[in-house]
Amino acid sequence: MAITREEVLHVARLARLSLPEAEADRLRVQLSAILDYVKQLDRLDTRDVVPTSHAVETGTPFRDDVVQPFGDKEAILANAPDRHNDFFRVPRIIED
């Protein structure tokens, strides 16, 4: 199953990975090979099979609605590559 160059570029955009031209072609070949391989699953008839999302499926547990502040805002912000006071700062959003 061949994946096109355009699809590679589209997926890279979706995944927010900038992709040099040369890399796009290499990835196209590698991804096509992997997708070819996994297409073997089509040989199985799974029409009546229920999908498994969790290996061990019970109900989800709950938390009581109690506030427990983390209490260290500085620790949350300390790793920020860029900040302004107590905000995380990011480059402006350009819709292109």
Partner: peptide
């Protein structure tokens, strides 16, 4: 050195 947000994110990850 990224000028916009999308470029910053995409290059950071790349």
């Amino acid at each position: 050195g990224a000028t916009g947000l999308i470029e910053m994110m995409s290059r950071t990850r790349a």
